[in-house]
Design a protein around this nucleic acid. Sequence first.
DNA 1: GCTAGTGATCTGTGATCACAGCTCCGCAGA
DNA 2: TCTGCGGAGCTGTGATCACAGATCACTAGC
Lengths: 233, 233
Amino acid sequence: MSSISVLAELPQLKRRTLADTAYEALADLLASGRLTPGDRLSLRQSAAALGVSVMPVREAVSRLVADGVLEVAPTRAIRVPVMTAQDFRALAETRMAIEGMAAARAAERRSESELTAIRRAEAAFRAEAASAQPDSARAVRLNRDLHFAIYAACGLAPLQEIIARLWLKAGPVINLDLRAHPERLRHGYALRRHAEALAAIEARDGPVAAAALAADIREATDFILSRGGLRDG
Amino acid sequence: MSSISVLAELPQLKRRTLADTAYEALADLLASGRLTPGDRLSLRQSAAALGVSVMPVREAVSRLVADGVLEVAPTRAIRVPVMTAQDFRALAETRMAIEGMAAARAAERRSESELTAIRRAEAAFRAEAASAQPDSARAVRLNRDLHFAIYAACGLAPLQEIIARLWLKAGPVINLDLRAHPERLRHGYALRRHAEALAAIEARDGPVAAAALAADIREATDFILSRGGLRDG
DNA sequence: GCTAGTGATCTGTGATCACAGCTCCGCAGA
DNA sequence: TCTGCGGAGCTGTGATCACAGATCACTAGC
């Protein structure tokens, strides 16, 4: 054992493999909606685009498949799953339940610094939505930042990972719709729910925070479903 | 289109790769506690044991690593993570929240056939626990069957997948403890909570079902933590 | 004109090889 | 007794090759 006990405080530095990088690259494509439901993916083409061999891409894709974010058809084609309306509704209900719960916990246990981070994220999203020419991609990212600032305050790391996976799964559908109908941003639904959530978190009111988050998700889901872009199962 | 319309009723037969099989084999080792926290794993040795090349094992391991069920140390060693007491408590709290919620939904929406399945699973576990010489491994499996019979009745497929992942993560710790202290089975804690949950599901009482499941998880967790087998973080 | 067949090409899956880096063990030096 | 130093034997990671099976454009036959 070294006598320099300060070394014990050093964080374990984690190894970054090419597969990790490939995973993030693909996840970003999905979360930002640049890969939309039904899109196909080729290992070799993706590998060429990333400048690596197929191996790292393979590993990344197999993780995404395990998460249900991608799927490989019996025909050996990798593609973004096309969800039925029922699938999407079940996913939304799961999100409402889990993210609502995370928001409730966040409201009850948030620290001052976490509250500050949430306030800042809310303001950033509000500013973007209120701007003369809102940038969809930027708004999506800021919305995500706000939600995860809230979930980060819930104090349960496993819960945050679960939510991140759910977002990855819902990402393609949500972003596809947002691209087709960017005007929803102006309606201010999300803004109202965000304000409600922020107020509830400030007041340490768990149930109200949960209700606000759930309403945010429900309204976005209903909007998308009302468009009829998803087929029935 | 073929004129034999019956063909439309055929189910999509899903491809089973060696990687899938390897994943299940490893997951079973973890869920049943034959791999315990701290155990190391070698790709080549695992591959040899399974009679395949390293490739399928690699893919399976990378999925388990993504799930947090295995980890690769910076030293390039694959092992079952050793959770701190805090980690385990956070995992348990997450489980209580999520599985409680699933149980509540199950109570409210269960069909008669689902209720029958739950009754049968509860009786099977009770019979095993009451037997003269309870088989730990068998009891663990029956306990799992009962829990998942309940969650299957919640009607949300994404939620079930999430719970399955959480169980895989908690499996090694729980089973390790159960092997060391099989006497807990006789105390009947689990039996009481199971009976409460079953009664609540029969009565379609969501909150009580959630409370019973949460209590089941909490008691098992407290028992394990009281043993002091987990180091602090 | 439409269907069935055919071959070139591309797909994911699996096996194998190459390699940098770690562990372990014995040995030499203080 | 402890420390430092190699070298052999591992490790996971990545690249490459082999292969069965699918796709797609195209043609022959009705």
